[in-house]
Design a protein around this nucleic acid. Structure first.
Lengths: 254, 254
DNA sequence: CGATAACTTGATGTGACTCAACTTAAGTGG
DNA sequence: CCACTTAAGTTGAGTCACATCAAGTTATCG
């Protein structure tokens, strides 16, 4: 296990990292990289695992390497709402706080580049250039969360559904097609259950289903299976979203 | 105008700052304070002024000393939504971005401790301890925005109205009463128009008005005038909000 | 292959938006 | 300082999108 080519070997872990360019790590100096290599370790969580419960003491942070994590908040009356989704290269966990206000749950199988929270906090003090990058990332995230809040607030369910589908289509643009799929149209992969999508959009599974079926009947999309859709008419989808294409692309970009 | 006691004199501006303790400035060293004193200046904006338009190049940043600023986003179809409110000691403006995604508008008369954006960005590079404080503040803000999004998403209009009133009551707890007000009950001051409140809560002025009147008929509040309410029954208001008191206090705290 | 969960479809009720009239407050100029 | 104007807020009636309850259908997994 001391082979330098072995991805599990600490020595080369970060240099072969698939999300390196998009994570905060890319500004780290060689010395900082070596230290990150020392304090980080790969951890995997199965789909459905609650990585961190709401209100629990937060002790791990890190970057998502693979999979999707949902951030949710349960209110007093019991119903919980998804307040965010984290994708590969997104930073995971809550720095500089005793506990997490939100629950983190693996929506798919998840691979994490995990670090001890206080260990990483100490690292940041020594490496302001990484903390600077972290601040920039969080400012972008703040804008994105506000933008998403504006969408879920002021739009119809159909507009939200169309927005989500289009944004996911842009995100999964460069992913491989489903096996056996011959079409030249883009395939949108939404790795969430209907319930999770509904929670994220602030609606119910029933209403969500109706809207998806309506889009399918209108030949805007074709339902391949519960989590895959063929995009038949992108501009119609944009029209249904009520947003301009530029705005949608900006949302997807983050 | 070179008198050291003169608040307009640069020399003593920051040391007499009323929001110093709550702003990021409080971690600045004496040397850093001197530099902040040099690059900052007080600016005032009249109620209704658009301090920065959506998509405009952002050139000024700073702290709000007095007043309320609304952050809003207008979508393609024209309707705009308030995605945030900024209060005294909150940081204003968008660092590390060419333009602002949102419009900043003075909801009341506003006093700002303004700085040139790139000037402050350069200052942060030299003073990582302030940038660190900025990161912590933004992480708190991120949680608060997500929490608010969860509230506006999954609750009825009445619950949102009650939440807003209660949170504002906690915020204005230590403010002076309206002149001539004899009651011992707390007075909630909401310095926003019905339209602005409606935009913030994701509803319409009509529906908002109906809910406020319902609360008044139920003797939960008494309407003093359009922007002032006497809080007659706090626990009933909490009950209407659908949130636990602790959650509401946490939201108000930020 | 049977059991359980996820998803879809249908029928029904209602909260909130819309359109419209009215009332009250806030500015403005004579 | 008061009449006039205009904006802000309230109230009412009608409609509709969406939630809810319920049943059926299709996946998923042991």
């Amino acid at each position: 296990m001391s082979n330098a080519a072995d991805p599990a070997c600490l020595c080369g872990k970060c240099t072969s990292c698939v999300i390196f360019n998009r994570s905060v790590c890319h500004v780290a100096s060689p010395e900082a990289m070596a230290q990150l290599n020392r304090i980080s370790h790969i951890r995997k969580f199965a789909r459905g695992t609650v990585i961190q419960g709401q209100g629990e003491a937060s002790d791990i942070v890190g970057n998502i390497i693979e999979g999707v994590v949902k951030l949710s908040s349960a209110s007093a009356n019991g119903d919980d709402h998804i307040v965010g989704l984290l994708f590969p290269s997104d930073f995971f966990g809550r720095l500089f706080a005793e506990e997490s206000r939100f629950a983190y749950e693996a929506v798919t199988d998840v691979t994490l580049c995990a670090m001890n929270k206080s260990g990483f906090e100490r690292f940041l003090i020594d490496h302001p250039e990484v903390e600077h990058e972290m601040l920039k990332a969080k400012l972008d995230e703040l804008d994105a969360v506000r933008e998403w809040a504006a969408i879920t607030n002021g739009h119809t369910t159909m507009q939200r559904v169309a927005t989500l589908l289009f944004v996911f289509s842009l995100r999964s643009r460069n992913q491989r097609r489903e096996p056996g799929d011959q079409s030249s149209n883009p395939v949108v992969h939404v790795p969430l259950s209907r319930r999770d999508i509904a929670d994220y959009l602030g609606t119910t599974p029933e209403t969500l289903s109706r809207n998806i079926q309506t889009l399918a009947r209108a030949k805007v999309i074709r339902i391949i299976n519960a989590k895959h859709f063929e995009l038949l008419n992108a501009s119609e989808l944009v029209r249904h979203s009520g947003e301009s294409r530029e705005d949608l692309e900006r949302i997807a970009a983050r």
